[in-house]
Design a protein around this nucleic acid. Sequence first.
RNA 1: GGGGUCGUAGCUCAGUUGGUUAGAGCGCCAGCCUGUCACGCUGGAGGCCGCGGGUUCAAGUCCCGUCGACCUCGCCA
Length: 592
Amino acid sequence: MLRTHTCGELRKDHAGQTVTLSGWVHSYREQGRELVFVDLRDRYGKTQVVFNSDDDSRIDSLARRLRREDVIRVIGEVRLRGEGMSNSKLATGEIEVRVHQLVLLSRSKTPPFEIEGGELPNEELRLKYRFLDLRRPELHRNIVLRHQLTQAVREFFNERSFLEIETPILGRSTPEGARDYLVPSRVHPGAFYALPQSPQIYKQILMVAGFDRYYQIARCFRDEDLRADRQPEFTQIDVEMSFVERNDILSTIDGLVSFVMKKVRNIDVPTPLDRYTYRDVMERFGNDKPDLRFGMEITDITDLAAICEFGVFKAVSSSGGRVRGLNVKGGAEKYSRRLLDVDLKNFVGEYGAKGLAYMKVVAGKLESTIAKFFTEGQQQSIISRMQGEEGDLLLFVADSWKVTCAALAALRNRIGKEQNLYDPTSFKCIWVVDFPLVTWNADEGRYDAEHHPFCQPNPEDAEYLKTDPGKVRADSYDLVVNGYEAASGSVRIHDSEVQQMVFDLLKINSEEAELRFGFLLEALRFGAPPHAGIALGLDRWVMLLAGNDNIREVIAFPKTQKAADMLTGAPSTVDDRQLRDLHIEVSEPPKT
RNA sequence: GGGGUCGUAGCUCAGUUGGUUAGAGCGCCAGCCUGUCACGCUGGAGGCCGCGGGUUCAAGUCCCGUCGACCUCGCCA
């Protein structure tokens, strides 16, 4: 070994011992020609090592040529630091190592940015020099946290008879859902594998095969546009169970969440987690993934808007739209007219809202440019409906149900954050259940699966399957944490006839279904147990536990928004020879 | 595909109504300093102002295009 101890390990009890440390030169301080201090760093910490020609340690020309990020090995004696010389900022600050022998293991070029201290460089540079960025303590900690979370998950499932089973990365393309990443086949000209969007079908087949408790830390791939919380490849904690009902999955995952939160962050999560229906959260928060660390619920005043004299409100309510609003407690003085008329109006505009109406509660009445369109009685009704008090700011969006949902949900999140309505370090995990089975796709003239085509319709809604499919609830559930979708799952169809009915509903005809999913339908005909499952977004969980709002901060080698890897240069062009082998011809050369 | 922010020294940024020699802090290099630990002091080097075109007597600054990073709407069963 090139070391006897790590750089975070030595304490005053080690005084007098001769030790060998290896690590990176974190900082270098020369004190005249005969005294040099180096803070030596590894992933465990930092230790001050001293080169001093005055006593029994040595200093030579090599020591004076050390530079930041050089990798060295030192052999020396652990000494207590003298009175007033210890450093309380370092865990090892009570001691230092007097160096007798120095070995330069590796020189470093001057780093393009500072490892610690200084402002963060732009992300492009950080990604190009990811090996340096990863040396920074914050990023380093995130990767360690990710490891701890992954191991806690394995521990939890292993103790409960779950089996970790791998499924293929090279699979079959299914045109539903997200765009696939495709891999051309050399031996089958013109044919392609697809990278999995999730192991969904494989895990269902594993249930048919009798592995009644499965989990996998599974890499998934989706070729869609990216966001701060989305990467083209990401990791799911994938789970499936046989002979269970919805409640069994929810309580199992309740257990997982509280186990993991306790284990990696020492946070107590009370279980069972609260459950809300889809309909409920959409009405109250406008969003199927509400941040419930704060209240500020949406209030509907469509009925009151219908009878007032304000043209916009009247028109919207009489044409089937909705008028809904938020009460920003004590917000009347906090939002200037400019902020309301320009900033917030443009903000809700991004979600399709054509305007933002606002009123202030002043002296028991509404104060607003539109207040004159409301009678005294109507004003009192609005105030009482909105639970308005002196100094409150009432914000309204009048539009379709969908637009009021989107605009008010976004507005609620923004105001909650900028008015500090919650503790940003806290956690609130909830279940959202009873999603619609399908949603109408006007462009294609058919229904689309809300979750996926294998999701069990709620038996209570069976009568609507043929008459009014939009009303059918799915036996599905999302786990929502602080406004992020942290997991999603459902009870699966285990009956090939029910599966066929759903395919019919989705206008996937039998031939097509047979072609795309025939292997699953066939499996379901050979004795499929009732089964259900869920997948948790590992990256998002790590992100939340790390207190971050960017998923790239918890992935060792993430990609940019255009799915490029700045470190390796992927994706890249390839040799013509490789293309010929794969029977591929490129029609448009890449831009240079 | 749409909207927005950004791109000036190795890094983070400033740069006025277009004006003659483009600055600061950190980092880097050299010298000094025997108890520093965000060490200190003195001196120095370092610029295709993302790229291409245009307007102008004159462009880091104005216009058009383009590339890249980030945020976001659509999209993500």
